[in-house]
Simulated assay, not measured.
Amino acid sequence: MSAQTAGPETLGHLSEEPPAPDPSSKDAKAIAGKSPMQIALGRLMKDKIAVVCAIVALFFVIIAVFAGVIAGLFGVTLDPGRPSQVLDFSTQLPKVGPPNNGFDPEHPFGIAPQTGADNLAHWLYGCRTSLIIAGSATLVASVVGVVMGLLAGFLGGIVDKIISFVIDFFLTVPFLLAALTIAPIINDRFALYESYPTIQRWSLIAILAIFGWMGLARLVRGEVLSLREREFVQAARVIGMPTHRILIKELLPNLAAPIVVSVSLTLPAFVALEAGLAFLGIGVTSGASWGQTVSDAVPWFDKYALYLWEPLLGIVLLVLSLNLLGDAIRDAMDPKTRR
């Protein structure tokens, strides 16, 4: 009995990439004539989690922008409370509202122990503080990171070596140690100034930006190193286009996707850092801040848990929604994703 010859073994596709779509298919026609940003936005709108996270993030942005208006509608302010009138002298807890009484419509989030301040007002303005500081620091860090990355990647040579050394130097400095060192200096130098709260906020923005631009700079530098050898850049050089025009008109538009992804992930990190520094007493200590409220509420957790949960839930919801939205933006802008 003769043995049958086996046919050649097929190992299948070694690449996990899906086959190219048929140009005449419905999916191919749907994206025809659209820019990569339009395609990414369309994919993002189909992601239910991204849409929900965007709505939550927009909710906090509206609160931050209209904190004063919303506080006025509820009749609450940041004015110091009157402990002798609203607090029980023996326990330092509110006479009305939580934790020992029912809901108080005049103070929907309750009253802070010891100080008698309104929790809702501090929650609203704390949201504004977090988003202003995190948004400003993200903007500054992104601009610095993009500029440094463009210059290092395109110019190369000694410029690239200097910028790379600066990036490596800042990456070796522990952020928390630097913040713990700088904060006492600012407190000693400007504590008696009338504008100390403003100085404190700007100094925190500067600290976050100074230690937050290196990752984006490295990312942009790597992208530029590959793009600068492309035909369209070489053609721009041949026709004598100035360097600044090549960087702005030719390279920067091709870096939109990684920049947007980096910004979307940096913002929630800065929100968490702002709250964490305020909790440690080296962030915003003058004015409303979620981190400062958490720090004040920790000793009262056993007797007044709601006082701690209110700012904590705000931080968690805002950071979680921004993180998930950033992940969704990254996936939507990745041409290889199958979402």
Rank of each mutant, 00 (worst) to 15 (best):
Thr77Met: 09
Asn187Cys: 06
Phe103Gln: 05
Asn323Trp: 00
Ala183Lys: 07
Gln85Asp: 15
Gly240His: 04
Arg82Ser: 15
Arg189Thr: 15
Lys29Tyr: 00
Val96Gln: 14
Lys29Leu: 07
Leu177Ser: 12
Ile239Trp: 02
Thr172Asn: 13
Leu273Lys: 06
Val76Glu: 01
Gly33Glu: 01
Tyr307Leu: 04
Ser264Pro: 13
Ser24Tyr: 09
Pro108Ile: 08
Asp118Ser: 12
Phe169Ser: 15
Ile133Pro: 10
Asp118Cys: 06
Val220Lys: 04
Leu227Glu: 01
Glu223Thr: 06
Gly283Arg: 06
Thr285Leu: 11
Ala20Cys: 01
Val56Ile: 15
Ile259Gln: 12
Thr266Arg: 09
Ser35Thr: 14
Gly222Tyr: 05
Thr285Pro: 08
Ser90Cys: 00
Phe89Glu: 15
Phe165His: 11
Leu318Met: 11
Ile162Gly: 09
Pro98Val: 10
Phe154Ser: 05
Val319Gln: 02
Ala6Gln: 15
Gly283Gln: 08
Asp296Phe: 08
Arg237Pro: 05
Gly222Pro: 14
Ala32Tyr: 04
Ala71Thr: 07
Lys26Val: 14
Val316Asp: 05
Val144Leu: 13
Phe232Ala: 01
Asn254Phe: 05
Asp104Lys: 07
Phe59Ile: 09
Val76Cys: 08
Phe165Asn: 14
Val316Gly: 09
Val238Trp: 01
Lys26Asp: 14
Asp118Ala: 08
Gly126Lys: 02
Thr10Phe: 08
Leu255Pro: 12
Ala28Trp: 01
Leu150Arg: 08
Leu150Asn: 08
Trp123Ser: 10
Val86Phe: 03
Leu139Ala: 14
Ser164Gln: 08
Leu317Cys: 15
Gly12Leu: 02
Val159Trp: 06
Ala137Phe: 00
Thr181Ala: 15
Leu73Val: 14
Gly287Asn: 07
Leu225Ala: 02
Leu280Tyr: 03
Glu229Ser: 11
Gly326Lys: 01
Ser262Glu: 12
Arg128Tyr: 05
Ser35Ile: 04
Gly145Cys: 06
Val263Tyr: 03
Leu322Trp: 07
Tyr304Gly: 10
Val233Arg: 02
Ser2Met: 12
Val61Phe: 10
Ser84Lys: 11
Ala179Lys: 09
Ile315Met: 07
Ile133Lys: 00
Leu139Gly: 10
Ser84Trp: 01
Glu194Ser: 15
Val56Asn: 04
Ser195Arg: 05
Gly276Asn: 10
Arg128Phe: 05
Thr243Cys: 01
Leu192Lys: 13
Tyr196Glu: 11
Gln114Thr: 13
Glu250Val: 00
Trp300Lys: 06
Ile49Ser: 11
Gly72His: 06
Leu171His: 04
Leu120Trp: 03
Pro19Ile: 04
Asp22Thr: 00
Ile182Ala: 13
Gln38Leu: 07
Leu150Pro: 11
Lys48Cys: 02
Trp290Arg: 08
Lys303Asp: 11
Ala297Trp: 03
Ala217Gly: 11
Val316Ile: 14
Arg330Gln: 12
